[in-house]
Design a protein around this nucleic acid. Structure first.
Length: 254
DNA sequence: ATGGCCTGCAACGCAGGA
């Protein structure tokens, strides 16, 4: 079984890439972020024709999350439960025994800004939600664009990034709170290439120079982590023409 | 030193991203 996550930065722009990439890699569950499409314009036909079962939660212009699956999906939540607004940044589904939480954490803009406070509040509510889910389910995978580089080794130039948004200590503390609930960073369960990143700035040849951050993650409860055989970042689509600025992350299970 | 790219929206520039 494979579970994948990919911030596509507009599903309509990246639809052919999603179809090509998923046809080649055959994930069983594929979580997408930043679909940037309202539900009435979601490309249902193209994806269903490719054999996918769909769940999606979109809004105009920004955010938007979706889950593509081979099997039937039950929707558990289409926004972060208990949060002040219903921005389409979370989609929780159940597929058999597995609960998949697909998240697009707010970017935060800059440390100290209003958006940064919003990000920290969103993360605090997320931790509460995951804690509640943990009491009800055992096999939970939380995937998506966390907009947090958990450690300095997840940052191409830690000195330049020190204290900045995506790297700041309060954000990293929020990430560690999820680990403290019992979730494991799937990627770090395995030996990985040095300087592994999942996002590269479009500007300044960021990808070519590997000036990136690892901000897309797969967190696993121990019950699922024990079955996990690999977590990899697939850099290939980032090198395609007109790419998303994020690479997909793939987790493989027995 | 600065910003350098991309997307959607709506309108010909902006907000937002990371």
């Amino acid at each position: 079984m494979k579970i994948a996550t990919w911030n596509v930065n507009s599903l309509r722009v990246r639809l052919e890439q999603v179809l090509d990439w998923s046809a080649a890699g055959q994930p069983d569950l594929l979580a997408l972020q930043e679909t940037k499409v309202t539900d009435d314009k979601f490309p249902v036909e193209a994806l269903e024709s490719a054999g996918w079962t769909l769940q999606y939660a979109g809004q105009p212009a920004y955010n938007g999350v979706a889950v593509l699956a081979r099997e039937q999906l039950e929707r558990l939540a289409d926004a972060l439960p208990g949060f002040e607004d219903d921005a389409r940044r979370l989609l929780a589904v159940r597929s058999g025994e597995i609960v998949l939480v697909n998240i697009y954490v707010p970017n935060g803009q800059s440390v100290g800004s209003e958006k940064y406070d919003y990000k920290l509040a969103w993360l605090e509510t997320l931790v509460s939600y995951l804690q509640a889910l943990r009491k009800e389910y055992s096999q939970i995978v939380v995937v998506g664009d966390y907009n947090i580089a958990p450690e300095d080794r997840d940052v191409n130039d830690p000195v330049a990034w020190e204290g900045k948004v995506l790297v700041s200590e309060p954000e990293r503390a929020a990430f560690r709170q999820m680990l403290a609930l019992g979730f494991e960073d799937g990627f770090r369960r395995f030996e990985q290439p040095e300087e592994s990143y999942s996002w590269w700035d479009y500007r300044q040849g960021g990808f070519r120079r590997n000036r990136g951050l690892r901000i897309d993650h797969v967190l696993l409860t121990p019950e699922l982590a024990g079955r996990c055989r690999a977590v990899t970042i697939d850099r290939e689509p980032r090198g395609w023409e007109r790419p998303s600025d994020h690479a997909p992350v793939v987790a493989e299970f027995d």
